[in-house]
Simulated assay, not measured.
Amino acid sequence: IFFRLSTMDDRNAVSNQAEELGTMMSTPPSKLISVASGAAASLERPYRLKCVTGNSNRPLAEAVAKKLGVEMCPARVGQFANGEIDIKILGNVRGDDVFVLQPTCASSTTDLNTSVMELLLLIHTLRLASAKRITAVVPHFAYARQDRKTEARVPISASAVAQLLMAMSVDRVVTVDLHCGQIQGFFHNTPVDNLYGYFLFSEYFKMKHGDDTKEFAIVAPDAGAVEKARNLADKLSASHVVTILKRRVEKNKVDSMQIVGDVQGRACIIVDDMIDTAGTMVKGVNLLRDSGATDIYACCTHGIFSDPACERLNNCDALKEMVVTDSIPQELNQAKSSKIKVISLAPLLAKAIRSVHEETSLSSLFHRTVPSTPVVEAVRSTGIDSSLMTLS
């Protein structure tokens, strides 16, 4: 009855319906209308937006919360004496729309597997605390490279991580540049929003090189990165897309490489979703240089930089810049190599979270035509005068 009254727009119809129902229930019509108004207000009341984080990338989480204009929900995320994870949500989250910002990566304060466990227990704790909806914001998704069986008796680790998240009853997952898009299928009926980093890189290089990027060659370091290279080339209006074919003999070790395409006399941008030990990247850069490329840049969404990656980048004279995002903390890596430039994901993630919270389209984030805040932050890290940029 209350729902019927609260969803009627015509005030006369509401009054007539209230009189009819009041007669049936021996209840004054005015009381019914009053209760219905309260029910309508309750139905229209939006969920409160809350952000929670663990220890894997707290600076990024705080930057996202600042962009959203909300404070981080206080939480204790530590360890007991025996190394077990100790978690307690210190604020009320009952009925809230909670976003857990936790890249599954290593940092100066935690290791990769601990960050995964923190994410799982944060979701579990929020579910027990009666949060209305829980979204895991995982910019870097761990174990994504193990997305299929490449030999006998090995796990499909990406699927296992997805199953763990679903077992914790997460409502939605937001990530950035999954190593393989098909990983979204591991989540079955749980929605996964895979955001794209190439848009940020295109703005960065457009701002730095202007229309010269039309003559650049965009390089895919392997067959799996061809789509990323094509997308970046489209955004830059670049005329050439080049692929490097490689034969990998074991993990993190490439036996041979060859270029498919012409890079003679052209500046090149190598694009990939992640960089780890940088061995393959440096070999690709040297191959491009030997094939006649001029200036060579590289951009990867996730900069893991396992040793000796920074040393290899420093010793690679042909590489001008290595541009990454802050999906993984980069302070220590930047201290080791001046070639590493960082673009912040905070504005993009904040807009994605706002869209999910307000239930608006996420695809609109990738149809802008002007540089945005992430590029300004990248410019500051490179020392370029940001006054050269034109923002709407």
Rank of each mutant, 00 (worst) to 15 (best):
T325Q: 10
L178Q: 03
T175E: 07
A65P: 00
F99M: 02
S337T: 07
F186N: 07
S355V: 01
D212R: 11
N333M: 09
V52Y: 02
G38L: 08
A298E: 08
L391K: 14
V52C: 03
V342K: 08
T190A: 14
L43K: 13
E358L: 15
Q102W: 08
S386C: 15
V14A: 14
L288A: 08
S115C: 04
S108E: 15
G265F: 02
I85R: 01
A223K: 10
Q182T: 04
L245V: 12
V173Q: 04
T135P: 06
P191H: 09
N189Q: 12
T104P: 02
C299D: 03
A309G: 12
S26D: 15
D9L: 13
G292S: 06
T280R: 10
V100L: 10
G292D: 06
K67A: 14
D317P: 00
D10I: 07
T7W: 10
I275H: 04
L232C: 13
S202D: 01
M8W: 05
L362P: 00
A293R: 01
T110Q: 09
Y198E: 13
T277Q: 07
A65L: 08
M8T: 14
I384N: 03
L5F: 09
N16S: 14
S387T: 13
L365V: 08
L21A: 15
L101F: 12
E359G: 02
N231R: 12
D147P: 00
T213F: 01
P28C: 05
L178S: 03
S256R: 13
Q102F: 04
S387P: 04
S34Q: 15
P139D: 07
S202K: 05
G265Y: 01
S337E: 02
D222N: 15
N92G: 05
K320V: 00
A18E: 06
A75H: 03
